[in-house]
Structure formats: structure tokens, C-alpha cells
């Protein structure tokens, strides 16, 4: 209560922020909005799915967004990316991060959007400390494990996400380490705590320990990862001609870990290898939307976050969470 002028000026949202963010403050509150405006996000790998994410969090009003992707734009990049104009004179010779950075800046003048040059596989702890949130996409599993490991070593609490869209399927991985948040239960706020597994732990759990209902995509993605690794391919570098070899690998892995091969349908693997680097734009929108909400949840400390995988497949239309335990749980 008390006098109207009694607030602490620095802690107030500006009139500009209040007007722009009115509708979303009604969803997540002023506190969450203030926390958002202080968060620094790094996105490595610029593609259809991550661009959807970037759009969402820039609109939401994060403090800053840095893009890392030195790959020079090619025609293939236009497929699911609405930030690259189909005009060679604009994108020719420039990196994905540079071209998209420019467009993203326009979305919200209150957010600092910038380019970080470099290779995600070289990201060290010191560099990571500049950020609160790291998102990786289209990098090798090796790089993901390396960066996830560095996030965990950092004294700072850094949220780690990996997101992949393959054709009409998608996967999101979440590692918030130890995450405290507030859950609204019957209108009453209730403090909660979650402990996450590292990416290494989450992909090395013996399959026979997992429940029968575990998402088929979880297994399929592990087969593809192993295939890319064994062939020295970069992320998503597959085509339909790889199918026989991928099916052979499926058999090996299933035998080794006592899983029935039918848990990883051939049709699913076929769709995934055939998709290669292609992303289905509606699926990018869905994955980027879900991950956007997750980033907002982890920054604001409000609402149940995903633990620790999310899957979407447009053939059944389900968006499913999977809580994959660590290898030692059993």
C-alpha cells in the first residue's frame, strides 16, 4: 500500500517496457520480466529450429542474445529460415550468424543481439561464464558433450539445451543441473528442486533399464548419433543410401543392450536418415516454441521445466517429455 511514488525507480519496468510487454507480464509477472531482461543467451548453430527459438526469446525480452555460426549462408539455409532474404546479394559470403543477427535486432530494440565468431567445439569455461543459457544445435555429439561438461564445471549456474529438428521429428535435451523453482499448486506457490543428469549420463543409460513406453525417437536418435560418429559425418549428414548401414547398427545396439528392434521402427529411421539436414518448418515452430518456453521457465524460476528430453513427431502429433535416468540409477 502506501504512497504511489514509493517504488524504487531502478526496479521498475520502464513505461516503454510496460507497454510492449503488457500481454506477457499478465502471463508470467513483472519479476519474471525483470529477470528475463538480465539474462544472457548463447545460441550455437543457426537453423530453422533455433531461429524460431531466437525469435521467441528476443520478443520475450531477454537481456542479450549471441549467435555463433560461422558457416557461410547457402541456398539450403533458406529452407526453414525466415530471417534470410532469398537475395544472394544480401547473404552471399556472409555467415549465418551475421545475416540472422541483423534481422533479429529489428524484432525488439530493447534486446542486444550480437555475433560471436568461433567454433563451438572450442568453447571454454571462461567464455561460457558470460552466459546464463547455452543452446546447441547441429553440432557433433562430441561438441555437445564437451560444452555440457564445461557448463557443469563452471561455478556459475548455466542452463544447457540441445535442440535438433530432423525432417518432421524433433528432440530437445535439457540439463539445468540443480534447479530450484516455484511451482504453482492450486494457486499456492510451492518451492521445488530438480536434479538433472548430464548429457553423457543421459545418453549412456543401458536401454534394457528403460521402460517399454520410452519414446521411440530417443532410441532412434542415439542410433543416428552413433552412426554419424562411426562414419565421421557432421551432424545430420545422412541420406536414404545410409539406411542399410543404419539398420545394421540398430541391430548391433539392440542386441548389445537387450532391446527389441521393433522399439526403433525401420520407417522411423528411414524418415530420419532421408531428412538429412532438412527441417519441416511447422516442426521447427513447435520445437522453437517449446524450447522458448523452457528458457523462460528456467530464467524466471517459475513453472515445471522439462526433465530431461522432449520429443515431437508429426506422424502421431504427440509432444512428449521423457525423464531418462542416469546409468547408475538402476
Amino acid at each position: 500500500m502506501g504512497g504511489g511514488g514509493g517504488g524504487v525507480p531502478e526496479e521498475l519496468l520502464t513505461a516503454q517496457e510496460t507497454a510492449l510487454y503488457d500481454r506477457q507480464i499478465r502471463v508470467w509477472g513483472v519479476d519474471a520480466q525483470k529477470r528475463l531482461s538480465k539474462a544472457h543467451v548463447l545460441v550455437c548453430g543457426v537453423n530453422g529450429a533455433t531461429i524460431e527459438l531466437c525469435k521467441n526469446i528476443v520478443l520475450a525480452g531477454v537481456g542479450s542474445l549471441s549467435l555463433m555460426d560461422d558457416h557461410v549462408v547457402t541456398e539450403d539455409d533458406l529452407n526453414a529460415n525466415f530471417l534470410i532474404p532469398p537475395d544472394e546479394s544480401i547473404y552471399s559470403g556472409r555467415s549465418r550468424a551475421e545475416v540472422c543477427c541483423e534481422s533479429l535486432k529489428d524484432f525488439n530494440p530493447m534486446v542486444r543481439v550480437s555475433v560471436e565468431k568461433g567454433d563451438p567445439s572450442l568453447i571454454d569455461e571462461e567464455f561460457l561464464d558470460k552466459f546464463d543459457i547455452i543452446v546447441l544445435s547441429r553440432t557433433s555429439m562430441k561438441t555437445k558433450l564437451f560444452v555440457n561438461d564445461n557448463c557443469r564445471k563452471s561455478s556459475k549456474h548455466i542452463a544447457f539445451y540441445a535442440i535438433e529438428c530432423k525432417g518432421s521429428c524433433g528432440e530437445i535435451f535439457v540439463d539445468l543441473q540443480n534447479h530450484s523453482y516455484v511451482q504453482k499448486h492450486a494457486g499456492e506457490p510451492e518451492p521445488k528442486e530438480l536434479t538433472y543428469h548430464s548429457l553423457q549420463e543421459a545418453i549412456s543409460v543401458p536401454w534394457k533399464n528403460l521402460p517399454r513406453k520410452t519414446a521411440k525417437l530417443y532410441f532412434a536418435m542415439r542410433v543416428l548419433e552413433n552412426y554419424e560418429l562411426s562414419q565421421g559425418r557432421s551432424a545430420c549428414e545422412t541420406s536414404l543410401s545410409d539406411l542399410p548401414a543404419v539398420l545394421a547398427l540398430r541391430k548391433n545396439m539392440c542386441d548389445e543392450m537387450s532391446l527389441n528392434e521393433s522399439q526403433i521402427p525401420t520407417a522411423l529411421l528411414e524418415r530420419l536418415v532421408a531428412a538429412g539436414k532438412k527441417e519441416h518448418p511447422p516442426v521447427c515452430a513447435i520445437l522453437g516454441g517449446i524450447l522458448g518456453q523452457e528458457v523462460i521457465k528456467s530464467i524466471s524460476g517459475k513453472g515445471d521445466p522439462i526433465k530431461n528430453f522432449f520429443y515431437f513427431d508429426d506422424t502421431d502429433g504427440k509432444g512428449v517429455m521423457e525423464d531418462i535416468p542416469g546409468p547408475s540409477t538402476n
Binding site: 500481454r23 508470467w28 511447422p282 515452430a285 513447435i286 516454441g289
Partner: peptide, 24 residues
């Protein structure tokens, strides 16, 4: 203002997801 203006609570993420599902 929210009560008086019948204001709809709205965020970009949900709209993006729903639009994706509409196209599918």
C-alpha cells in the same frame, strides 16, 4: 486494466506452437 479491457494473456511461444500444429 486487464479486467476492464478483457485482455487476453498472450505469449509468442504458444502462438508459434499452435501455428505449427495448424499447418500440420
Amino acid at each position: 486494466k486487464g479486467v476492464a479491457g478483457n485482455i487476453v494473456h498472450a505469449v509468442a511461444t504458444t502462438n508459434a506452437i499452435i501455428a505449427g500444429l495448424i499447418v500440420i
